[in-house]
Every structure is written in C-alpha cells, then in structure tokens.
C-alpha cells in the first residue's frame, strides 16, 4: 500500500522522531512511504484565527501537493482534521470543493489509518513504561478518532496504560489561544499536568504534536519527571533498542 506522509510543521521541525518513527512503523507494516516534499503547513493557525483568505491559498497548495497520493497519513489528528475542513473553504467554488472532498476521503490520522485501513491492532511493539494518553480534542471530537490509539497501545508489550482523569478536557493549547489568552491557557494546561501527575505515569503519550508541545512545555517548566512522546515512537519500539 502506498502512503504519502503528511508530516505537519511541528513534526517537521520539532518532533522529528515522531515522523521518523511513523515512516519506519508504516514500512514495518508493509506500506511504501513517500514524502511529498513540497508540502507545507495545513493552514490551521490562519483558519482558526479567522484569516480564511490566507487559508484558502494554503489549502489549494496542499491539495495540489497531496491529491495524487493513494493515502495521506498525518501524524497529528488536528492537522488531518484541518484537511477535512478544506471543503468548507470552497463553498462557492465547486471545482476546488470537489478536489478538497477527494483529498478528505483519503486522508487519515496515523492510528486511524493503522486500525481502520490496515486493520491492524497489534503492531508488534514493546516498550517498558507506565504511560497515560492524552486524547486531543480535535482528533477525538472533530475527526472522531476515539478508540484507535487505545486499541494500538493496549497491544504494546510491557506498556502499562493508566487512565487520565478528566481526559476529555482540553489541554489549553488552541493555537493562538495559548498566546492570546495565555493566562487562561496556563490554567488549563496546569490542570492537565495535575491530572497527569495524579496518574503517577512516567510517560505521557499523545497523537498531536501541538498538545504535546503545550503539555510538555508546562511539564518542563514545572520540572516534572514525566517524559513526553508521540504515540508513533512507542508503536515503533521493539524492545531491541
């Protein structure tokens, strides 16, 4: 199966290991992975801030770059959701709208792709840790991916997965919200870090770089001893490393 990886900005620049792991993991599961080099950001920062004209330019570019793929697999639920939203940008432009819908139909978040398309739940990973998982809002509520990450993590040998209390709560990222309303955002992420602490987990996992950057940044500022990793890194671990 041929897969085009959608790396996202944060994955390209900051969470490079998540992307590397995703590539190796997908190949391990029998996919052929390519990386359309001209891909950029999904446009969400502009979209959520109300700059829809600018977003349209980005969307058109991404559609052009990605539309030849068999499958587009992204390593962030929120950014994949943004691709799913492109169609709404082109309410009055049916040609672009159709292309946006076509792209939507083959775009998946990584765990969703593995579980729903590849039909795999046990990826043969093993990792020793007590972990808790942050369900990010856009991926869970808007993209509708709820079970897939848990199905995959449950099968990881050596991994003890503990429930995160109030897991449905937003971590307070929200793109520009974290900057514009930084004092409110701080309270939200603090609450999240408190809940993570309650679990006594030594590893926080997630499938959205932005949430991980937010929670991780607060964990680091509060000097907490919790490691933060993208789910792909765990799913690509086979205990020989």
């Amino acid at each position: 199966m041929k897969v085009s990886l959608f790396i996202t900005c944060l994955g390209d620049v900051f969470y490079v290991n998540a992307g590397k792991s995703a590539v190796e993991l997908l190949e391990h599961l029998g996919c052929e992975v390519d990386f359309p080099e001209t891909q950029t950001c999904c446009g969400q920062p502009a979209y959520n801030s109300g700059y829809h004209r600018e977003t349209k330019e980005v969307a058109k570019h991404m559609i052009e770059v990605m539309e030849d793929a068999d499958y587009v697999v992204g390593i962030s639920g929120s950014c994949v959701y943004m691709i799913h939203e492109y169609m709404h940008l082109f309410e009055e432009d049916s040609k672009w709208r159709d292309r946006a819908i076509a792209l939507k139909e083959k775009s998946y978040e990584l765990t969703q792709f593995i579980v729903d398309v590849l039909n795999i739940e046990d990826v043969g990973a093993s990792y020793q840790a007590i972990a808790t998982y942050h369900t990010s809002c856009h991926m869970t509520r808007l993209l509708g991916v709820q079970e897939a990450p848990f199905k995959l993590l449950e099968k990881v040998k050596g991994l003890e997965l503990v429930d995160l209390p109030n897991r449905q709560d937003c971590c307070g990222f929200g793109g520009t919200f974290a900057v514009k309303m930084s004092n409110i955002s701080e309270q939200m992420v603090d609450e999240k870090v408190d809940h993570i602490e309650e679990t006594k987990a030594n590893l926080l996992l997630g499938a959205d770089g932005s949430c991980l950057m937010n929670i991780g940044g607060r964990i680091s500022r509060r000097d907490k001893q919790v490691e933060v990793k993208h789910i792909a890194e765990i799913l690509n671990s086979r205990g020989d490393r």
Partner: peptide, 14 residues
C-alpha cells in the same frame, strides 16, 4: 511566560 518551548531539532524531518 508559563511554558517552555521546544528547541527545533538540528536536522529537520524532511
């Protein structure tokens, strides 16, 4: 003001 920000990786994914 309330969080650290990650340092970009030395080698980008691409």
């Amino acid at each position: 003001e309330s969080r650290d920000f990650p340092k970009p990786a030395n080698e980008s994914f691409r």
